[in-house]
Amino acid sequence: MDTCAAFILGIWLLISIVWQFQFKSLTTIKELDFIGIFPNWTFFAPNPGTSDYHIIYRSAGEDTGIGEWIEIPLISYRTCSNSIWNPEKRKVKLLIDCINALIKTVQKCRKEHMSELYMTQNLCTSVPYLLILNAVTKFHKNSDATNATHLQFTLVESFGIESTETAKPIISSPFHRVA
């Protein structure tokens, strides 16, 4: 048992050390670690998250036309209670992970000189995109929904509480039919 434990923990530590390097050749191997057993300990670096991401959406219906943009409230300002117990942080992290993945997909498509149509297809069928679309649909259905037939969302980046810089859109979806 001693040898078995030494082997498992030793290999785990060794791979964890290698995992910290950002070699291009490691990227494909790293993607195979679905579970995330091997950590990447670069918290808030080298690019610290200095902006907030928001999901806004609007609905469209045959009778109502195109509606106003509505923000899905995700960011809650820090209070004593949500410092200690903070379930909502996972939703914020999910949005950050999804946006980072979408940006990566766009960069990859551009690098491979894909056409706009093919890139849009790639984006719209990716898991991060579908997760956001799913969240938008759920939020819309739970709100005082009008009889909308289509939904469109936009991911927006803003630059902090004290910032005067205008928020900018990152990705805008086409209108999707609501089931």
Partner: peptide, 16 residues
């Protein structure tokens, strides 16, 4: 020296 302020200035991980 901008990172700490800019992170704390966000709604996601910051504090007003």
């Amino acid at each position: 020296g901008n990172a700490v302020y800019e992170i704390f200035n966000t709604g996601s991980y910051g504090n007003k």
